[in-house]
Amino acid sequence: MDNTVLIIVSLTLVGMGCGIAIFLVNRFLPEEDKLLKKTEEISKFLPGMNCGACGYPGCFAYAGEIAKDIDILQTSPCMVLMNDDKKVKALGNALGVDLSSGDKKVAVVHCGGNSEILYEYKGIDTCKAAAQLSSGFKKCPYGCFGFGDCVNVCPENAISIDPEKKIVVIDPDKCIGCGLCTKECPQNLIEIIPAKMPQYLACNYLSKKNIPGRERCPLGCIHCRICVKASENEEVTWNEEKDLPFFDPEKCVPSPAAVEKCPKKVIFERNET
């Protein structure tokens, strides 16, 4: 029975020793960094898969940045990628800000992809590389190249390449609106819009009022403004800066007249998902 006592005593002694040591260290060291504590707090709520989509090296580093500046949260795709309202709200509560995600958002491509080929392109088959040679190999310098830089970054595999038109197609059902693809497109053709937007312009021909889109692309906006005239209640306005029609994402009003009257049929209707 001696042994039993010994076991208990030794284990207790060692345990106590350890406990005391930790206590002492805890007691006599300076205060810990407040930022660090906050960082750890935040990192608990982050996905923890260190995907790097936020642009920081890993979730912990990202948490450190958030601890310094809460606004970063709004501009990163992380919250959407987490795809879990509960977690997002919990993080919001912990930080004392409202992070309710709002409506579902999806990405659309502002190109119908009918522009002819201007020259034979030889080189790396990525959009980023193609965009650097005389604004791309298609007659329209603003269109989609269809090499699919965006396809590779999509976490949900929602983007595919249309084999005929050689442009990208986004599956609105799969898309979670994280916006990672928007950063990849060298032509800035992908935009995140509310899922309930009833229509969008499938063209990004930024006219300087010199060459109408039709010379470059059979399916390009010709800046005729018929859509604006057709819309009775100003569902469609004119974006003077881009010289393109503008559908207000805040309002999301359907404008069947604009869709119908567009002479180039470049305003695409979309079904709510």
Binding site: Y119, Y121, K122, L133, S134
Partner: peptide, 8 residues
């Protein structure tokens, strides 16, 4: 008539 080849 001829399309040129463009590369870097």
């Amino acid at each position: 008539q001829k399309r040129l080849v463009v590369s870097t």
